[in-house]
Amino acid sequence: MGQAERQQTEKSRAETLATKAQPAALKTLLPPGALLRRPQVLELGGGVRLRKGRVHEVSGASADLFAMRAAAAHGQPVLWLGLYRDIVTLNPAGLQAWLEVEDLILVEAVSRGELLWAADQALRASGGVCTILDLPDTLSLKESRRLQLAAEQGGGIGLVLLRGPASTSAAQTRWDCQPCCSTPPSWDWVCLKGKNGEAGRWRMRCEEGQEGGRGKAQNAKNTLHLAAAASA
């Protein structure tokens, strides 16, 4: 047995010991069922991770795709909130390649205030809701902080699609997503801001023959693969 392997087994043994020793202590500290909760991080593929219970901002021409990837990783329920003029352009025949259309609930608000209220309620809702907020402009610091608090309470994930320029906000991360001119299609995802230092630049592309693939898309939603990752 090599040195490295031995170290590995020792390490894993130490870990198992730790987990065996812990339950009694954990039971007293954590609410029942806390250990069974779904993982607190969403894996979007290619090492892109989003923390749950947080609000993330997305801007750029392919922000929709980023949000859909997060929604697909989260699972139902997915709430897509926006003004009527934005929601009405969503096409389920196109969305079906990226997420389960059944999971989707649309909210057509008539004003910005209503939109923010609905987003707050959705993020606060128990069970964890993936909330995609299609905002006509940007969030102010106060508004984003309120949404952030709501997300922490509900345990879901909030994605704010920004149409305008980003401003100071309480969001966990901010992403800029742009489509690239290539075949097969690819996208540039740049993490512009990360509260915990998550920064980086990703070039995502579709797995071969998967894009909008008939039949296959039914079960395995389009998987994106990491092509290149370089820290920004």
Partner: peptide, 30 residues
């Protein structure tokens, strides 16, 4: 394309989406 789907009140409908046969854009401008 614009008549392949409709939006109905969530209260009344059980969610059900049989996959559409053709590749379509995710945003549709009508």
């Amino acid at each position: 394309p614009e008549h392949e789907f409709e939006q109905v009140e969530a209260v009344q409908a059980e969610p059900h989406w049989p996959a559409a046969p053709r590749v379509r854009p995710i945003r549709l401008f009508t």
